[in-house]
């Protein structure tokens, strides 16, 4: 297995980390892309989904947007955006080659988990609690800020955590269509049959992904004050299929 040797050689060579297209610069670029896309998706998705959840409207759309998002290959959307006349492969400041196309794709793929989870978080607040809040004379806005949002926060954050994982993965795939980020090391290594380099890039991407996930899990635990101590398997689980991401059983539709 000489590839591991090549990989190690690539990772331990200092000059591969520094410079304009070194690992450090690409890592910074991909982190910047990830954070920007996540913030943009939060700015668009959170207010809409939380308010719709508060009103209890648009549930069909809010739940199904996740199913639609899953069916669209990230690679295909990135490819379409890059080949289209706009946004194409234009440079965008620190975001690099095809920066705008990548940012648009990342934001679009961050939206579904944020919208679905935020909507469900608002709807899952127990009706008794809601009624009690109204009985105390709270207005709709007060109910939202003081009751529904604090109770729904863990689920909202778990949606953000899913979105973060999704955005990081999509940002890596951007390199398959000549986009920016760490994926460049992987695709460059593979397309030039320099597998040691490709695997080294993959290792860095995977390691950062795990660090981001751990960080998100810590944030989630910090905001999860209400359900602390309940056994695993509750709705706070980000990857849980039932509850947040599953549509209601067929018979309740008809």
């Amino acid at each position: 297995m000489t590839v591991f040797g090549d990989m190690w050689a690539y990772l331990t060579e200092a000059s591969n980390w520094t410079g304009g297209d070194g690992i450090a610069a690409l890592l910074g670029q991909q982190l910047l892309l990830t954070v920007t896309a996540l913030l943009m998706a939060m700015a668009v998705g959170l207010p809409v989904a939380l308010w719709l959840g508060h009103l209890g409207r648009g549930g069909f759309l809010a739940i199904n947007i996740s199913n639609v998002g899953r069916a669209i290959p990230t690679f295909a959307l990135l490819a379409l955006l890059v080949v289209a006349p706009w946004p194409g492969t234009d440079e965008l400041g620190p975001y690099g080659r095809a920066g705008l196309a990548t940012l648009i794709a990342l934001t679009l793929f961050a939206l579904p988990p944020i919208i679905t989870n935020s909507y469900v978080a608002m709807r899952e607040v127990a009706p008794e609690v809601r009624e009690a809040a109204r009985g105390m004379g709270m207005t709709g806005v007060q109910q939202f800020w003081r009751v529904e949002l604090p109770l729904g926060l863990p689920l909202v954050v778990s949606g953000l955590r899913l979105a973060l994982v999704q955005v990081w993965a999509t940002a890596t795939i951007a390199a398959l269509v000549a986009g920016p980020g760490l994926g460049q090391i992987i695709t460059d290594g593979f397309f030039r049959s320099n597998y040691g380099k490709g695997i080294a890039g993959a290792l860095v991407v995977a390691a950062v992904a795990l660090v981001l996930e751990l960080f998100a899990a810590m944030v989630q635990r910090a905001v999860d004050t209400t359900r602390r101590g309940t056994p695993a398997g509750g709705h706070t689980d980000a990857l849980s299929v039932s509850g947040a991401t599953v549509e209601p059983p067929a018979e309740s539709l008809g």
Binding site: M1, I173, T187, I199, G201, A202, L203, V205
Partner: peptide, 13 residues
């Protein structure tokens, strides 16, 4: 959590 574009290369060896 590991992106697909990173998981495939890690399996290649």
């Amino acid at each position: 959590t590991v992106p697909s574009l990173a998981l495939f290369p890690l399996l290649v060896p």
